[in-house]
């Protein structure tokens, strides 16, 4: 008798067409979110709030109610949704440009208030949709369309380490950074997303997952090379790990 080992989650729209660039990890991240929503049985009680950038298209893939926020304001809008309807499952999905730059105040204050929502943030060290400009997570030395000679400290300052910062906020119940560079890490990433969602369902506070992701197009790399960069460069600075988990002592 055949055993099914792979299927598209029921939470993915039947007519969804893949629109991300080849080798982009957004597709994997969206799928992991879809799987977690399915496994936790919350999809029909979910309201997602999407940031502006490549991440906004999550509402084209996952079969759920969604609200599209102005750039940087997804966490504020999610706060409004959750405060209006505390029994709904509410998460935001946005990129680093959205969350870590223009929306940093919203993210941090939601964490400080302990809003019972989950934020997923894709860190690909660049503004992807607008064509690969320097962003808040762009790494030292990284060449982008607005750092043509590479990011140097004197001129551009430092990139932000989101998972660590969010973990410092007292209202944060869970904060983790994960990577999608290997199958093993993809599994870990899914565990983290699921944990973040469960933390919300238990009403423990704000939960946050930063996902290290490729942007082969703007990095001018093949998918393979892009994942090598994630391993060799990004993971050395943006170290994967669980930075806060109130369900476990001494993380």
């Amino acid at each position: 008798m055949a055993t099914q080992v792979f299927k598209i989650p029921n939470t993915i729209k039947k007519d969804a067409k893949f629109t991300f660039c080849p080798g982009c990890d957004h597709g994997v991240a969206v799928r992991l979110v879809a799987e977690c929503l399915e496994e936790l049985g919350v999809i029909d009680n979910t309201i997602a709030v999407c940031g502006i950038g490549c991440s906004v298209t999550i509402y084209d893939f996952i079969d759920m109610d969604a609200l599209e926020a102005p750039h940087g304001r997804s966490v504020a809008e999610a706060t409004g949704v959750k405060r209006a309807k505390p029994d709904k499952f509410v998460f935001t999905y946005s990129g680093d440009g959205d969350y870590a730059s223009i929306g940093l105040a919203e993210g941090m204050h939601a964490a400080l208030r302990g809003e019972k929502i989950t934020s997923i943030c894709i860190n690909n060290t660049t503004y992807g949709m607008t064509g690969g400009q320097l962003g808040p997570t762009t790494m030292l030395g990284q060449v982008t369309t607005t750092s043509p000679t590479g990011r140097n400290i004197e001129y551009y300052g430092y990139p932000i380490k989101l998972a660590e910062h969010i973990a410092l906020c007292d209202g944060t119940a869970f904060s983790a950074r994960v990577s999608l560079d290997t199958v093993a890490n993809i599994k870990k990433a899914k565990q983290a997303i699921k944990k973040a969602f469960e933390v919300q369902l238990k009403g423990l506070g704000y939960s946050f997952v930063e996902i290290l992701s490729t942007c082969p197009t703007n990095w001018r790399m093949t998918p393979d090379k892009a994942h090598e960069r994630v391993q060799n460069e990004m993971m050395q600075v943006f170290k994967p790990g669980i930075y806060k988990d109130v369900t476990v002592e001494n993380v």
Partner: peptide
């Protein structure tokens, strides 16, 4: 009912949008 002392006016009005999207008066 809900009251949030928002971190900025940007956040306040967008929280209002979020609440309104669920059909409640905000």
């Amino acid at each position: 009912r809900a009251y949030v002392s928002a971190e900025s006016e940007l956040a306040a009005i967008n929280m209002t949008i979020g609440a309104c999207s669920t059909g409640v008066k905000a």
